[in-house]
């Protein structure tokens, strides 16, 4: 009897210990299998495209991101990611030549860059996160967003040098969701991604837009419907703008001289404001276009808007 009891205790203890070790080794976020670690480097050629266009000082963090992602996914899931490194359309960062960008008469944003090509796997992942609410995927998706972020930083900096810790952005903002959607879903995926990005690169994240009405899911509409639907869908968020303007003017002393500030690097404060607009998916660009128009209209100084999206369809 007693022996039995002791034996069962020992078994419980062992099980608890084993469970603890397993937690440390953590499985794939999607399928729960063992993660690949270094083993998976060979199977992962498409990632290497990210190294190609980057400035030398950005290569080290990109390697770190690769390590971090491959610790979160198993080998099989890792190779499924269709990285968008082979860019044909310089404006919207698409993998194929893009009629939408040519058709757009007055683009309100400069560039868009996305991390992945939107395919059925990526759709499933995004659905798991957005609709099912599997929030453990959030760090993974945000980390995937770091890569086009570096790319976009390079574009924004132009010929100027970009060193880590001296980012070329004034602030990050995101595409809002309607109040009903936020109630139903519990979070705004774009806001979450922007928040992680802001935390990582030490940039201010500010809500500058509100959605004026509850429109249906964009994914169920055609391009033309989307264009019509987008009309006056977004409005500036006055509280957010006020907070941002106050913050912005704090950087300028009353005499109008340049305040020493390592956030804006060596850029003049009189140059236009650079805004990074974050969203989860770029399909026709109508959402980004509508948001950018509102931002441009509302902004008192000139502003350049860059869009960073997780996937490009």
């Amino acid at each position: 009897m007693l022996l039995n009891r002791i034996r069962s205790w020992a078994a419980q203890g062992l099980r608890a210990g084993a469970g603890f070790l397993q937690e440390q080794g953590c499985g794939c976020l999607l399928c729960g299998r063992r993660t690949g670690g270094r083993d998976s480097t060979a199977a992962f050629h498409s990632f290497n495209g990210w190294y190609r266009d980057l400035l030398p000082q950005h290569r080290r963090p990109v390697y770190g991101i690769f390590q971090s992602i491959s610790n979160k996914l198993c080998r099989d899931c890792l190779v499924l990611i269709p990285w968008l490194t082979d860019i044909r359309c310089g404006v919207c960062g698409r993998g194929i030549a893009c009629p939408d960008c040519n058709r757009r008469s007055r683009p309100a944003f400069l560039y868009n860059r996305s991390a992945v090509q939107y395919d059925s796997t990526m759709r499933d992942w995004l659905a798991l996160y957005k609709y099912r609410g599997l929030e453990r995927l959030e760090p993974l998706l945000a980390e995937m967003l770091y890569l086009p972020y570096y790319e976009l930083s390079r574009l924004a900096a132009g010929s100027g040098t970009v060193s880590p810790g001296c980012e070329p952005w004034d602030l990050i903002t995101y595409v809002p969701v309607s109040g009903e959607r936020a109630q139903e879903r519990g979070f705004n995926q774009a806001e979450r991604l922007a928040a992680v990005l802001g935390g990582r690169f030490n940039l201010p994240v500010q809500a500058l837009l509100v959605r004026t009405r509850h429109s249906g899911k964009q994914s169920l509409k055609t391009r033309r419907e989307r264009m019509i639907d987008m009309h006056s869908l977004f409005a500036p968020d006055e509280a957010g703008w006020a907070a941002w303007e106050e913050q912005y003017h704090q950087r300028i002393n009353p005499a109008g001289k340049r305040y020493k500030d390592n956030q804006s690097g060596d850029r003049s404060i009189y140059s236009s404001v650079r805004i990074l607009l974050v969203d989860d998916i770029y399909t026709t660009g109508s959402t980004i276009q509508a948001c950018s128009e509102v931002l441009t209209q509302r902004s008192q100084s000139a502003c350049e808007i860059y869009s960073l999206t997780w996937s490009r369809s």
Binding site: Y174, P176, V177, S178, G179, A182, Q183, N188, E191, A195, A207, L209, V210, R211, D237, A239, G240, A243
Partner: peptide
């Protein structure tokens, strides 16, 4: 500035 949760809900 504290994190504003539901953007748009005001």
């Amino acid at each position: 500035e504290p994190l504003r949760m539901a953007s748009g809900s005001g």
